[in-house]
Design a protein around this nucleic acid. Sequence first.
DNA 1: CACTGATCTGACCGATCGGTCAGCCTCTGA
DNA 2: TCAGAGGCTGACCGATCGGTCAGATCAGTG
Lengths: 187, 187
Amino acid sequence: MLRVMARPTPQTHGEILAAAARRFAATGYRGTSLQDIATEVGCSKAAVLYHFANKEAILTELMAPAIEVLRSLDERITEQPGPAAAQRVAAEGFVDLAVRFRSEIALLRGEFPELLQQPGFVHIQQISERLIDAFAGQSERASARITALVLLAGIAETCGQFADVPDQELGDALLALLRRALEPPGH
Amino acid sequence: MLRVMARPTPQTHGEILAAAARRFAATGYRGTSLQDIATEVGCSKAAVLYHFANKEAILTELMAPAIEVLRSLDERITEQPGPAAAQRVAAEGFVDLAVRFRSEIALLRGEFPELLQQPGFVHIQQISERLIDAFAGQSERASARITALVLLAGIAETCGQFADVPDQELGDALLALLRRALEPPGH
DNA sequence: CACTGATCTGACCGATCGGTCAGCCTCTGA
DNA sequence: TCAGAGGCTGACCGATCGGTCAGATCAGTG
């Protein structure tokens, strides 16, 4: 029976987070089991659940910084005086968020719909609806809303795949795309 | 013990397909179990597996028409004389495909990455890479490829959510978006 | 009547999932 | 020296997954 060395580790918490991030990025949230994470860390599954209440708690802790920025962006948008200003702030803020947190967003890997319905993420849904509103220039026109949703989902879905592109270049490209593609408010 | 009525059913095959489509659209491929489908049909899970070799076979049969159209679009694109023509054909063809098969695409629900790696779908990956090439005007510039991927993924990811928008209106909106957003070939 | 092939069922399989639990080890400080 | 706390383990749990299988039921055929 192997006796594992006495570990000095309260840093295990952080190691689990980092390992979980790698696994989620590789195989998605649902596609990653607690055992996968434990194996990557080199500890038991029970150790993972000693440091985190459950699987979802790992994800929420990983996403916390990005969610905080998203929430503050939401506030800034609602403070804007008109649809044009709101659209501009939303575009710039969302691009900045997508670029800065692209690795975190990448771990969701298309599981947005399911994850948004998990208990810890319900309010994100409302925020994303307000983001679409802002992108669409508060218009109810179908074409404006289609454009907004396609761009929002497209950026969220793909920004994690450009790990090799520098922040500045990725941000410029996305912002230029939004400026070209978004319809100016006031049909 | 309930004795189920004698069913006249060779149409069960079709019923299973329709039920699977509803369940996949509601909870995704991975989020739908064979038992879910069987319950929706009103038969046993074993009956589902009598009509289909396995779970993936249900999905491939559901997607077959859309995949056939995608394949023929791929052929048409490669036949084009230059990047500009290829980009135009790709944009129009992809929008047409997204609109016509939006309900089928919707059942993938963001599980593209995983599903593309299943045995029956490997060639789709290559086709989608050629689609991105065409969208980007065969350019290697990062901004062109970012734009292409965002639009492609955005449309694929969202087209299923506009079930209430008429084909014509949705197609026009998407095509207008692509014309605005895609960078013309020849940097 | 007997037989056949298509259809379908319930019981079952091994694997894996997220999560629980009793208890062991090591370190610390009184 | 020893109690206790923090950190961690292996064994285990119930649930669910995709898939298998022997056999029951039926319509059609001769």
